[in-house]
């Protein structure tokens, strides 16, 4: 039950994108097309879950108690190598997907959602299983948000948007409305 709560909390109630503002760059950059948005969400979920596992192991087996000050440096290194690994994997398995994700794959390294996840897990003192579920939930939440966003933006293509609002501004306004909608989940837990 506890694990289920962690999952729901990370996925919808405290959605990483819409409540914590983590992972805004890909959220705005890759949400133009529904299919690539969904793939991006999947890639992020995958990296998030792996990150949750690996950073928990590193933090609790290596860094505690003497080397805690190395936390940020070691986390970011682990994430960078994980992303590299995922990139090689996708390149091998699906070339079209690799091309669609383009520049944003290496950018997962600097996706604050990933590092944020690792930091939150440490801050909240999650156990191993909690961390893994937290990673899965946060990834699902990110996928949900970016997919909805892409769906809305595909419709927006045909809408008559005021000149000054074209591009980034209208995207941000849509994100604002989405954030309002997601607030409706606040009473869930």
């Amino acid at each position: 039950m506890e694990l289920f709560l962690i999952f729901i909390s990370a996925a919808v109630v405290n959605n990483f994108v819409l409540a914590y503002f983590l992972g805004i760059c890909p959220f705005i950059g890759v949400s133009g097309k529904l299919s690539s948005a969904f793939s991006m969400g999947m890639a992020v979920t995958f990296v998030m879950t792996l990150t949750a596992i690996v950073t928990w192991l590193i933090y609790h087996l290596l860094l505690v108690p003497d080397l805690v000050f190395l936390q940020y440096v070691s986390f970011i290194l682990v994430i960078a190598s994980l992303v590299q690994f995922v990139e090689m994997f996708i390149k091998k398995v699906s070339a079209p997907l690799y091309r669609t994700l383009g520049i944003f794959l290496p950018l997962i390294t600097t996706n604050c959602a990933i590092l944020g996840l690792a930091l939150f897990a440490v801050m909240r003192d999650y156990g191993f299983l909690d961390s893994v579920v937290f990673g899965l939930g946060a990834g699902a939440g990110f996928t949900l948000a970016i997919t909805i966003m892409a769906g809305v933006r595909e419709e927006l293509e045909l809408a008559d948007v005021p000149q000054a609002f074209k591009g980034v501004p209208i995207t941000l306004v849509v994100a604002g409305l989405l954030a309002l909608a997601f607030m409706g989940f606040a009473g869930l837990i």
């Binding site: 501004p169 941000l172 954030a179 309002l180």
Partner: peptide, 25 residues
């Protein structure tokens, strides 16, 4: 109240971008 909620951040920044665009135009 909406301004100090997450939604307010998105909306305000969206409007700031729009104003910057208009000025630039």
């Amino acid at each position: 109240i909406v301004m100090i909620l997450p939604a307010g951040a998105f909306l305000t920044l969206g409007f700031m971008f729009a104003v910057a665009n208009a000025v630039e135009k």
